[in-house]
């Protein structure tokens, strides 16, 4: 039974007056994570917008015990915490319920610089929740391309639009044979919440990636953050699914898309409301580009359908 909005816990880990941009998806995602995990949780953060918005010492905007760590070490730092806790609780040096350990990492710290340590932690099936908030660029340093930036999107290092497709990080993690994996969208907060709770109650390595439209980097009005989150799902640009022990189940609108019950919403609409895709609108071969992007989405959907049927 899915949780309704009114049933969401009232705990707030995001304090008012944090330093993130207006309309920041990361802080909203962290709010929902706080509701799912409750107060008995500890967090690791690598350099990212979330750390930049935390406030300067001695002030902190997030009401969790947070250890800031080196950029490439999210995967191994969280493993260190889990193993140390297991040791201390076994020895009786700590008592009570062991806290939930989770990471809060951008796509830079996940897809790119942090990948090695994450892969190793997943292979060891270390007992924590790796959360990636994917804003499809290195937003904190001023929006440079990342391994998660989609083809055609402009960043400060791809001013004419990125020439390559993004990598499929969730699938890469799924093939580490971890017990739980999920993708999420902020437009569907209760779906995200339920996935976080499921991850909390699953033992082993959990990977959750939440799509995080960044108004500053993607160049759209801050008020459109949820709208664009929703359009990414309905257009098929972002697929909502979860996998328990490798078994894929599609969720929300993605499930209906996969079943062929709804048509994809026009990709043109998704592109046209974001400044990062402005070069497509100006391009002489605009139709061709959109067709290519659409075909890629259709191919991904077909691939995922087959993958889910395993």
């Amino acid at each position: 039974m899915a949780t309704s909005i009114k049933d969401l816990p009232r705990d707030e880990v995001v304090m008012k007056g944090h330093g993130a941009c207006a309309g920041c998806p990361s802080t909203l995602a962290l709010r929902i994570a706080g509701k799912a995990f409750g107060p008995n949780a500890v967090c690791v953060m690598t350099p990212s917008c979330t750390v930049a918005s935390l406030g300067l010492i001695p002030k902190a905007a997030y009401d969790y015990p947070i250890l800031n760590v080196c950029f490439a070490t999210a995967g191994s730092s969280a493993s260190g915490i889990v193993y140390a806790y297991e040791s201390l609780y076994k020895k009786g040096k700590l008592t009570g319920e062991m806290p939930t350990v989770f990471t809060w990492i951008g796509d830079g710290g996940t897809y790119d610089i942090g990948l090695q340590a994450i892969s190793a932690a997943a292979e060891r099936n270390d007992n924590y929740i790796f959360i990636c908030y994917n804003n499809e660029a290195y937003s904190n340093t001023g929006v440079q391309r990342s391994g998660a930036t989609p083809k055609f999107a402009a960043t400060t290092t791809t001013p004419q639009g990125k020439m390559e497709d993004k990598k499929n990080m969730p699938l890469l993690m799924l093939d580490h044979q971890i017990p739980y994996l999920a993708t999420a969208s902020l437009a569907y907060p209760t779906d995200f919440y339920d996935k976080l709770v499921k991850a909390k109650n699953t033992r082993g390595f959990k990977y959750i990636e939440v799509f995080a439209p960044c108004c500053t980097g993607w160049k759209f009005p801050s008020s459109d953050m949820i709208r664009i989150s929703r359009m990414a799902v309905t257009s098929g640009a972002w697929l909502l699914y979860e996998a328990e022990n490798g078994k894929i189940k599609f969720n929300g609108p993605t499930a209906k898309i996969m079943e062929g019950k709804v048509e994809l919403s026009p990709l043109e609409d998704y592109f046209s409301c974001q400044g990062r895709f402005a070069s497509i609108n100006r391009a002489a071969n605009k139709e061709e580009i959109i067709a290519e992007a659409k075909n890629k989405i259709l191919a991904d959907i077909e691939f995922m359908k087959k993958r889910a049927a395993f």
């Binding site: 304090m15 008012k16 007056g17 944090h18 330093g19 993130a20 207006a22 918005s53 935390l54 406030g55 300067l56 010492i57 001695p58 002030k59 902190a60 905007a61 997030y62 009401d63």
Partner: peptide
């Protein structure tokens, strides 16, 4: 709490990023 001179600890509080209503 006032900051610790040796250990870089930060304490959760509203307004860590300032009175952000001013941004509006």
């Amino acid at each position: 709490k006032i900051y610790d001179e040796k250990y870089p600890v930060s304490y959760p509080m509203h307004g860590a990023g300032g009175k952000t209503g001013d941004w509006r």
